[in-house]
Design a protein around this nucleic acid. Structure first.
Length: 946
RNA sequence: GCCGAAGUGGCGGAAUUGGUAGACGCGCUGGAUUCAAAAUCCAGUUCUGGCAACAGAGUGCGGGUUCGAUUCCCGCCUUCGGUACCA
């Protein structure tokens, strides 16, 4: 019987559905499941209209293998799938077509589901969730309400109910309250608080709430009627459409993630995530310890410039001050003589894009304001400059410049002829470059002369604090996260406005449903699409919040919903959460490092503070899967000036015949290309015909082929994307080779975390292997021929070698190296040509996580009941792996010359003696003196001779 | 610029703790089978020299540690990913 993947895969898919093989149960209260729990989660996909391409399943296959493996190892495994189904593409589509995003999203999800089901995943589909479902988003809204109702108490080091703060304010004011709040929160007494109106009190509390409306600068694009993220803005215009973008101050909901900065930072030490990803989060949080120092202005000592520095010890080396061009004080302190220069500089700085600023790292620019401030430590006059290397958004937007210790300050000082003063006796060559050392003793440094770094810093800070001119301070780079979007297709914010004050709606009124609108565009007055909803008022009188939540809202807690997806009383029951606890293995792309993965940790810490979840960190272990790239195929079109000229394509191997010609690269649908992805890839006459049908605008074009009649294409590795017409649909691969083959091939491509181009070259090898594996069970008359004969030692060794290798490799997420283990076992057993149940049955279970269909087929052919996926994973028995003899490599001076077999139990000195006595060893050392013999029993022998 | 990851045959990659570099697969070459082809099977395949036995070189480059280095250390180059001129 031949291996027919299509038939068996169809059969067992239905069997698994009918038998509910992948259904997962949470033990009911009071009950116990003897099995330990294990939670394997894939990062939430957005169901795009383009469907899945072969790159997406890489992570899903890995996690599915792991989930199946853990199940066979006796764990109760939760392995769900669902959709992060709010998002911009569906809204964009709605704007174009008028089709409600819910409708198109629903269609996309169906397609996603079909594709996923085609690949043999063991998801428990009864737990499927989607963030755009009101039954789901009511809990996203509910969590938002909890954030609104809490503040972060730094003494308790956790979120506390806002009522506790209110009570304290009424009793003692806020002077002693240590809590995360806005920087400019005024100090008030209890009397002040009690004298406030209800409205004033509510506005005051917003400065403490963990989610709050805040005026912040956004990239506003009037033409698109929406706010854009930084990466949607290119060269000052929108990436999509090229419309102008302006910086606009807008009231936006924010999340006080900064309150959790420290915990998010230190929490990283307790989770097993890739080091590079943790490092990215650390950098994003950007904790730096230093001091803030206030420098009074020379002509107005009451006004002070505040700086933050991580090197307060260098304060005597300050020879100038640098402000960001956007700094508030710039206009005040600029002298009339310098006004023109400063104005010009500010104008010029504003015109520079981020990209330009990055590219010109080495160019020094700046302008003198004409004013001075006073260094409080030595009362020296310090000139004040502005420079665009100082960023308005970080710290105080002002830098105390120490050219002897900081290279950028050094460059600036050299350029403007400012003094460079050494401050440590260990600084070297500061006339050539800055030296940032902390070694040595201070010089030219007043009160800290002769001290070391560790002695100087506390002394300086104590002095600052005593004089009220500064203090020790910890600065974070991380900003509060903007939480509002001026869009339609997202969760409505459960808030209504009474004048200037936002109030939560009642919990009993959740979910606040997304209202219907006539169009998905902003209103003429620039209000978000929700302003179009008719009669949409809270209690028929109050205006609802019109912005919606961002994409990361729904994905910041979704792993809990899978634990108890149908619950209508709470986001997930206590029992379910306490049973499943956290994610044991999380698989997804590293591009979410500072978005989803940081916000999710933040929400999880918050839910932990409220006692709603048992673990501080939601995912113990995380692995990143690399991107699968595609090959983009281009053909060369001669560029012409005139529109009506004949358009000519040239075969890529003929380009040298056209030395002075310019070419445009036109992407070609990869389906038309022969030898796709190779150097020789080309369009045949037929391919050219397909291209013409596909692009009728080139119907009349001329195609200059090579002698073989081929139009050679140019192949580049790049993104797999609709716009390059190079998307490979997994359905097509599965149709041709079967899901088992597809799964094994994706794993076989290489390490899971590595990016690699998709290439079908090798898939035949995996297909051949599966057929060989199938044929292990049959004789050459194609009859099922498995016997109950006792296995030989050799057969057992083959089996247990594979078991050992596969077990070890899955445990270290090395799925690519498991595939060769199966191949080797299959090849070796194939040669013996004696199919035995005692060997093959274990092998079937061993391969089941990788190739679930063929394993199920053989499990049943071997006469077993139920599903192979509920069997028990085989354990390697070292007994069968023991060798009688070991092949030792014999090296002379570290170079392996020959190999010799010795009994496995040979002793060190026995080995040494017999090796030295061997004829073919002697010939290497006869004319030399043996200096040393290194024998590593079981490994190798090295003879050192000269 | 900074941070992170990685450089191994014609290609994807393997070598888990410093111990036979190139497993396994693709491709290629030769052979068997076949009227022929496909499929399948067998053998070979890092490079250089040699009919061969064999010799030499070899894991981005240059050094070092070691009996022994793809693996550890120092310096450099290249590619990819991230990013913030972060005081």
């Amino acid at each position: 019987m031949d291996y027919q993947p299509r038939d068996i895969e169809k059969k067992w898919k239905k069997f698994w559905e009918d038998q509910k093989v992948y259904r997962v149960e949470t033990p009911a209260a009071g009950e116990q499941d003897a099995r330990p729990k294990f939670y394997v989660l894939d990062m939430f996909p957005y169901p795009s209209g383009a469907g899945l391409h072969v790159g997406h399943p890489l992570g899903y296959i890995a996690s599915d293998i792991f989930a199946r493996y853990k199940r066979l190892k006796g764990f109760n495994v939760l392995h769900p799938m669902g959709y992060d189904s709010f998002g911009l593409p569906a809204e964009q589509y709605a704007i174009q077509t008028g089709i409600h995003p819910a409708v198109s999203t629903d269609k996309n999800i169906q397609r996603f589901r079909e594709q996923l089901e085609n690949m043999g995943f063991s998801f428990d589909w009864s737990r499927e969730i989607r963030t755009s479902d009101p039954k789901y988003y009511r809990w996203t809204q509910w969590i938002f309400m909890q954030l609104f109702n809490h503040y972060y108490d730094q003494e308790a080091d956790k979120a506390l109910p806002i009522e506790q703060l209110i009570e304290r304010l009424a009793r003692e004011g806020n002077a002693a309250v240590k809590a995360a709040c806005d920087d400019d929160t005024p100090v008030i007494s209890a009397a002040d608080w009690n004298a406030m109106s209800e409205e004033q009190q509510q506005l005051f509390l917003l400065q403490y709430r963990l989610t709050f409306p805040k005026e912040s600068y956004v990239n506003w694009c009037a033409a698109l009627g929406t706010v854009l993220s930084n990466d949607e803005v290119k060269d000052g215009v929108s990436e999509r459409g090229g419309y102008p973008v302006e910086r606009k101050l807008m009231k936006q909901w924010s999340m006080r993630i900064t309150a959790y900065a420290d915990r998010l930072l230190y929490g990283l030490d307790n989770i097993d995530w890739p080091e590079s990803l943790k490092e990215q989060q650390r950098n994003w949080i950007g904790r730096s310890q230093g001091a803030s120092v206030r420098f009074p202005l020379e002509n107005d000592p009451g006004t002070k410039i505040e700086v933050f520095t991580t090197r307060v010890d260098t304060i005597y080396g300050v020879t100038f001050m640098c402000l960001a061009p956007e700094h508030d004080l710039v206009s005040e302190i600029t002298t009339p003589e310098q006004q023109d220069e400063i104005d010009q500089y500010i104008k010029w700085a504003a015109s520079r894009s981020e990209v330009e600023r990055m590219a010109e790292v080495k160019t020094v620019t700046g302008a003198f304001t004409g004013s001075y401030c006073i260094n409080p430590f030595n009362d020296e006059k310090v000139p004040i400059y502005i420079a665009d290397y100082v960023l308005a958004g970080y710290g105080t937007g002002a830098v105390m410049a120490v050219p002897s210790g900081d290279q950028r300050d050094w460059n600036f000082a050299t350029h403007f002829g400012l003094p460079i003063r050494p401050i440590l006796d260990a600084q070297e060559n500061i006339d050539e470059a800055a030296d940032a050392t902390k070694e040595g003793k201070y010089i030219n440094s007043g009160m800290i002369n002769g001290l070391t770094y560790d002695e100087a810093v506390p002394k300086l800070i104590a002095w600052l604090e005593e004089k009220g001119l500064g203090k020790g301070k910890i600065q974070y780079r991380i900003r509060d996260a903007i939480f509002g979007r001026q869009r339609y297709w997202g969760e409505p914010v459960p808030v209504y406005w009474n004048g200037e004050v936002p109030y939560l709606i009642e919990e009993s009124e959740l979910p606040l449903l997304l209202p219907p609108v006539d169009k998905y565009l902003p209103t003429e007055t620039g209000e978000p699409p929700l302003a179009r909803a008719e009669n949409w008022k809270y209690q028929d009188q109050y205006e609802y919040e019109l912005s919606t939540m961002p994409g990361w809202a729904g994905s910041s807690w979704y792993w809990y919903r899978y634990m108890d997806p149908g619950n209508t009383d709470t986001f997930a029951s206590k029992e379910a959460i306490n049973y499943w606890k956290d994610v044991d293995l999380y698989v997804g792309g590293s591009e979410h490092a500072t978005g989803h993965l940081l916000y999710s940790r933040f929400w999880n810490h918050f839910l932990y503070d409220l006692g709603l979840v048992p673990e501080k960190e939601f995912a113990k272990k995380l692995i990143n899967q690399g991107m699968i790239q595609g090959v983009i195929e281009f053909i060369h079109l001669i560029k012409t000036e005139e529109d009506d000229a004949t358009r000519t394509f040239i075969s890529a191997d003929l380009l040298e015949n056209y030395p002075d010609t310019e070419f445009a690269l036109i992407p070609v649908h990869v389906d038309f290309v022969s030898d796709y992805g190779k150097d020789t890839s080309h369009l045949t006459a037929e391919g050219i015909g397909q291209f013409k049908d596909w692009r009728p605008d080139y119907k009349e074009a001329e195609f200059i082929a090579n002698d073989a009649g081929q139009l050679v294409t140019r192949s580049e590795v790049g993104k797999m994307s609709k716009r390059y017409f190079n998307v490979v649909n997994p359905d097509d691969v599965v149709e041709r080779y079967g899901a088992d083959c597809f799964r094994m091939y994706e794993m076989f491509l290489g390490p899971i975390e590595q990016a690699k181009p998709w290439d079908m070259q090798g898939i035949d090898g995996v297909y051949r292997f599966l057929r060989k594996f199938w044929n292990l069970f049959f004789n050459n008359k194609e009859q099922f021929a498995v016997t109950d004969d006792a296995p030989t030692k050799e057969e057992l060794k083959i089996l247990h070698t594979a078991i050992k290798k596969v077990n070890e490799d899955i445990e270290r997420f090395s799925f690519n190296t498991c595939v060769p283990a199966f191949m080797v076992a299959t090849n070796d057993l194939g040669k013996l040509n004696a199919p035995k149940r005692a060997i093959l049955q274990d092998l079937v279970v061993l391969i089941a996580p990788f190739a679930p269909y063929i394993a199920e087929e053989m499990w049943h052919r071997l006469g077993n009941e139920g599903s192979v996926h509920k069997a028990t994973y085989p354990e390697a028995n070292e007994e069968y792996l023991k060798e009688d003899s070991i092949t030792y490599p014999i090296a002379i001076n570290g170079k392996t010359k020959i190999t010799v077999d010795f009994p496995a139990d040979a002793k060190k000195d026995e080995l040494e003696t017999s090796v030295l006595g061997m004829e073919n060893v002697q010939k290497y050392i006869a004319d030399k003196t043996v200096r040393k013999v290194i024998v590593v029993p079981g490994r190798m022998i090295n003879i050192v001779a000269n």
